[in-house]
Computed example of a mutant assay.
Amino acid sequence: MSHLEENQSNSWRSGNFLVIIICGAIALMGFGYVLIQLPEITPEQIEIYQTGTCIEGGWRYGLIVTHVLTFILIPVAMRIFYEALNNLKLPTKTIFASQLGLALIMVSIASEIGWHVTQCWYYQNDFTMLNFMFYFFLISAFALWADGLNKETNSSTHIINIIFSLSLLTVSILYPIGYKLDNPNLKIPIYIALTLVFAVLTYRGYKLLEDWKIVLVPTFSVGVNLTFVFLLDQFGGDPFHPEIFYNALFHILHDLTGTQAGIAIFTWLVYQKGIAEYQKNN
């Protein structure tokens, strides 16, 4: 058995694998709970689709293109991260975590697209199964992505991963309650969890890249993103009292200049450090 194979075998037998199992079980318990508690299609969704406002024409095409762009951006990011993290000598298991995290972003966006289709592309901050899946897989994706930037695994890493898992469980418990009470404030823990994950992602990204520009990632993916979500809530109207211009505009900007911009910036920084500089020095 080679040295690499021996290390990987020992890793699977070590406490690392146990922590992975625990974290996965905690997260999936929450996901399963929501699957049981939340209706697949809510009466509110049916009413909105039948009698609410649909976004048509150019705005609809703009929204569709904006969301589909993710399925171009993420494969490019996966390719760059894979090569760059290999060049930077990160362990195979962390590279796998980053790849899995990036893949889950596409699962998240697919759920989001389904959610918006049921809304006839008129954004509103409601409680639906697809909306929950969007947030669940997005938090999971960024948590795995953050884990994929670790040069070594230690007790603090395990603690952070367990905190991420408990955050997912908490969000999963509160989400159906928010649906039953029709209280959007119960989505706030989702935003807190995303901010927490991005704080860890930014810190680990800085440790890896040693580039202050990493702060632009949470600035766009969290700050700009949530700013436009807030503007959507304030000025986007609702399907029965529509504000199509503001709803579509802020919706596009929240994705394009928020999450997608942050991912693109991160990918560029990783390319510069892990590929461009590596090729220059080797």
Rank of each mutant, 00 (worst) to 15 (best):
G30R: 03
G237Q: 04
T53Y: 11
I80L: 11
H251L: 05
Q45R: 08
R60Y: 15
K273S: 12
Y123K: 03
H251N: 11
L63R: 05
Y206W: 14
A103Y: 05
D126Q: 10
P176T: 03
F220T: 15
W121T: 00
L231Y: 04
I55A: 08
V117C: 01
Q99E: 14
E112M: 07
I109E: 01
I22A: 04
F220L: 13
K151C: 05
F81S: 12
M129A: 04
H116T: 03
S221K: 04
E6H: 11
L90D: 02
V197P: 06
K273G: 12
F134Q: 03
G30N: 07
Y49H: 13
F81W: 15
T118P: 01
A276P: 08
I173Q: 04
W59C: 00
Q260I: 00
M1K: 12
G62K: 08
I275Q: 11
A97G: 10
Q37I: 01
Y175H: 01
L100W: 13
Y33K: 03
Q260N: 04
F250T: 09
H158T: 12
V34Y: 01
D255C: 06
H241L: 09
T195Q: 12
V34I: 05
D211W: 15
F17A: 09
H251V: 01
C23M: 02
S156T: 11
F31K: 00
V68I: 15
V107P: 04
A27V: 00
Q99K: 09
I20L: 09
E56R: 10
H241D: 13
I55Y: 07
R79F: 05
I173G: 02
Y191P: 02
A146F: 06
W12Q: 12
Q45S: 10
A25Y: 01
W145Q: 08
C54M: 11
Q272D: 15
I192K: 02
W212V: 10
I21T: 14
I113M: 08
L209N: 14
L208Y: 03
Q8A: 10
I160D: 12
P176Q: 04
A141F: 01
W145K: 07
I41P: 04
T257L: 06
I177N: 03
A84V: 15
C54H: 08
P91K: 10
I72K: 14
N125R: 04
F132Q: 01
P239I: 08
G205D: 06
T66W: 07
T259G: 13
F96R: 13
I173F: 10
G62T: 08
S167H: 03
Y135G: 00
G15D: 06
L100M: 14
Q124K: 07
S156Y: 12
Y61D: 15
T42Y: 03
P239R: 10
K280D: 11
I64E: 14
L231P: 04
V217H: 13
A193K: 06
L181T: 09
W115S: 07
G52Y: 08
L201S: 14
F127A: 02
F137C: 06
G237S: 06
I41A: 10
S140T: 05
K187V: 01
G32T: 09
I95P: 06
R13A: 04
T219V: 13
V117L: 10
N281V: 12
T128Q: 02
V171F: 00
T70L: 03
I113F: 07
F31V: 02
T259D: 03
S140V: 02
L249R: 05
T92R: 12
M129H: 02
L144P: 00
I163F: 15
A146K: 00
G258M: 09
A110I: 00
